[in-house]
Design a protein around this nucleic acid. Structure first.
Lengths: 119, 119
DNA sequence: GTATCATATTCCTATATGGGAATATGTCAA
DNA sequence: TTGACATATTCCCATATAGGAATATGATAC
């Protein structure tokens, strides 16, 4: 079996760096025309259209006609499954940071109590 | 250009549902032998070994020899980039939930004030 | 209608799968 | 050494790209 299609779920859709760039861009600027994205990312227009097609199929973006342009808007809520999954691991690095922080504070306190002691 | 390799970055590595299952399993149970994962997920052993190989290559897991077994341990901190990226979008659905909640509360208050009014 | 602008689609290609089967490697036990 | 056990690797295949080039579609202006 080959790899699952990028259009089957959000995890596959955002595995592509360019698609994440498009998402980021739409998050910063609201709805954008394809041409704007083309200019912003410096990619060929067909490439952008294809990536938008993938994002559209999984629901991460929606398109609205506007004259001869098409405005794409982010539907960020579709990213929630990714957030939910990875959030479960948040504690692993925040704990790590906490440990480092506490150790640093303890060391500082030791230094304060014993100013002449060597490391 | 084909799709990027699953070993190029964490986003690609976790795009595979089975690999996320393995990550979840290791998160719940600490270091596990390959055979344990095979039994837990009901996958063929070579499949599990291959997925572990991908996860190992991007650093999400590490392997330690233990007799004739190999114990795989999660390195959850490697998932931080994913969390960092998607966290930026958290506000989109929490805001949404806030709005829904506020609206529900407002409606409830209205009903309390006008018990006989129709919807 | 015709030319033009904006976007989507099609066709092609090289490549990266993920699964299954078979096999290789490595380790321990007798 | 030999055999059993645990895991990794190799080979093969069907499928899904992502990019480039060319073209199709759709809307607007003239």
């Amino acid at each position: 079996m080959p790899r699952a299609a990028t259009t089957t779920d959000v995890f596959n859709a955002i595995a592509e760096p360019r698609r994440r760039q498009i998402v980021d861009l739409l998050a910063r600027h609201g709805a954008l025309a394809v041409g704007t994205i083309v200019v912003a990312l410096g990619l060929p227009q067909p490439a952008v259209s294809k990536h938008l097609g993938v994002l559209r199929e999984v629901g991460i973006v929606t398109a609205a006609k506007d004259g001869r342009q098409r405005l794409y808007e982010l539907q960020a809520s579709q990213l929630k499954p990714v957030h939910d999954w990875v959030k479960a691991y948040e504690r692993f690095w925040t704990q790590q940071l906490d440990r480092i922080k506490r150790r640093a504070e303890r060391k500082a306190k030791e230094r304060a109590n014993n100013p002449d002691e060597k490391a």
